[in-house]
């Protein structure tokens, strides 16, 4: 009987921990998923699935090393699977995916136009370069990005430097 109570208390603690992580990473994950072209509603479902898997992962006593990288990797893989499953669905137009920036009184019109053009250049980059940029933007370390995408650390550094230069120099030419 006491054993059962202990197990229940353990589950409670884990659920609390996972909820805290959910609160911290739901926004960043949703943004990353949208940058991959996943619609918000599907993104919410994927995020749920990620944290349910995390709950099970921790319940089985598996590694707690680099949980942030783990969370993003699982989300990334689920998004790819979703995309394969979604071939028959009407393709989501990426241009419509990114919502237009709301007019911001602090930003001049010229600046927000420049930003829109920059994001358009980013959308034209190779998939993996875009993914590196968006993961970096969510604050992941290169080591974590490498783990999420299954590439080497050097490839991450190369992709980031290459695409930052491409995005901003293409921007300046216009």
């Amino acid at each position: 009987m006491t054993r059962n109570l202990e197990i229940e208390a353990e589950r409670q603690t884990l659920a609390d921990e996972v909820t805290k992580l959910f609160q911290a990473y739901r926004g960043p994950l949703l943004r990353y998923l949208m940058s991959l072209g996943v619609p918000v509603a599907v993104g919410e479902e994927i995020v749920q699935e990620v944290f349910l898997s995390l709950f099970q992962h921790l319940q089985e006593g598996k590694s707690r090393a680099n949980l942030r990288g783990w969370i993003f990797r699982v989300a990334h893989n689920l998004a790819l699977k979703e995309r394969q499953r979604g071939v028959r669905r009407p393709q989501v137009d990426l241009d419509e995916q990114y919502p237009c920036p709301a007019p911001d009184p602090e930003n001049s019109a010229a600046e927000s136009q420049r930003h829109r053009r920059l994001m358009a250049v980013v959308r034209a980059l190779p998939q993996q370069d875009q993914q590196c940029l968006h993961l970096r933007a969510e604050g992941l370390r290169y080591r974590e990005i490498a783990e999420v995408l299954g590439i080497s650390l050097g490839a991450v550094a190369l992709a980031l430097s290459r695409s930052v230069l491409k995005a901003t120099s293409a921007e300046a030419v216009r």
Partner: peptide, 23 residues
């Protein structure tokens, strides 16, 4: 360039996520 990208991206994703309580 990186700073500019981060700024542009923040603008592009500055949308209203539904409240977190439900999820």
């Amino acid at each position: 360039g990186l700073a500019e990208f981060l700024q542009a991206r923040a603008g592009a994703f500055d949308m209203q996520l539904s409240a977190i309580d439900g999820p």
